[in-house]
Design a protein around this nucleic acid. Structure first.
Lengths: 201, 201
DNA sequence: CCGTTTCTGGACACACTGTCTATGATCGTC
DNA sequence: GACGATCATAGACAGTGTGTCCAGAAACGG
């Protein structure tokens, strides 16, 4: 087995990936046919089926690639035992998304009947859970809220803001600024953002 | 034009709606065909097309029905000028979702390429924005965070938790308890949930 | 350069779609 | 309970996209 893929395969797969993503963003996943994809990628239809079983397999391949990269990045950021709350992991996700905004938009919009969305949610949620666990351990306290729920909530918030950010017209607000806002919300709560620091009632 | 729909139409449409939702939850939207739907609903295939243009139209109809109901409910809860933060609107959404959990699960999972998800996000987000605006006005402060972003984040958080709640094995945790947790997170921030009240960075 | 791998168009059976028509069943109403 | 209006239905139809196969052409890496 060769280490590096045949150039033709590489080119073909890349073209198919790009074609899928851009067509889905344009028309929606359901409205995209394999024939559309091969036409956009300028590839023979028979060729498609030598690489992927069907449209779904190509979609899953794209999602898996993105998640694989993301996991590797997050692993690096999380390496130093970091019970503080620097927002590093969040920033890393935003940076990654900025590098391939289209794929992220496809996933976050829920294209593909939300399969990519759920996969991203799981991957991100696992990281979130680890962060919260470390924090609880470091503070030696009993968590006030079930950590699974907390992780879900946190991830849901971030994914929503990430999608908003990716869909915003360019030039987008600076990554650091958005991340800083998210961290502040986690730190002080949402009421802080619309009123006084200590809220009566 | 008659006020009440013909009984036959009502029955047929209801059966189609239920069939779509349960099939989608079982196999995923893309894997469900019109033939499957009419078989499950025990309706002739020709009949389907007298009511809906295609599968997508049926899906949109279901989503629109849910959102319509939700809007009416939220309007009632929001009627009293309520700048406090009672969590009433959130509780109302959870109650509504508990009444038709399957439709909500279909939507929140992102089935239908996320179209329902986006529609729900918009409806809910509008309400959220109104709530935050009222609060900012009541406190006569300049919001620290763009209210659109804030609304997005809030809604994202709640939708994530709602889905978790709906997918949880029965008996589900009590609505009030989950809502109370969400309100607390908004009030004090997420760090509070995993540590001490005043957190040193 | 040569053996291997990939690409390709065209043909095929198949599943599902969306439309139409004629007939029978069920409705609301008087 | 009878009647006109509306709805449900089976079956036929052409059309579109799918997934598989093949044999020849092209591009690859060593």
């Amino acid at each position: 087995m060769t280490v590096v893929e045949d150039r033709r395969s590489r080119r073909t797969r890349g073209a198919l990936r790009d074609a899928l993503v851009s067509l889905v963003l344009e028309r929606g996943y359901a409205a995209v046919t394999v024939e559309d994809i091969v036409a956009a990628a300028d590839v023979g239809r028979a060729t498609f089926y030598t690489h992927f079983k069907d449209k779904e397999a190509l979609y899953d391949h794209v999602v898996a690639s993105v998640l694989q990269e993301l996991k590797e990045r997050l692993a690096q950021v999380l390496a130093p035992e970091d019970a503080g709350f620097t927002g590093q992991p969040v920033a890393e996700v935003f940076r990654h998304a900025a590098e391939q905004p289209d794929a992220y938009r496809m996933i976050l919009r829920g294209e593909g009947d939300g399969r990519g969305l759920r996969a991203l949610e799981d991957a991100w949620g696992t990281t979130a859970h680890e962060i919260f666990s470390a924090r609880v351990k470091a503070n030696a306290v009993r968590p006030r809220v079930d950590l699974q729920v907390l992780a879900r909530a946190w991830v849901g918030e971030q994914m929503a803001v990430l999608l908003w950010w990716l869909e915003a017209p360019e030039p987008r607000p600076a990554t650091d600024q958005v991340v800083e806002t998210l961290v502040e919300l986690s730190r002080r709560g949402r009421l802080w953002a619309t009123g006084f620091d200590s809220d009566p009632r």
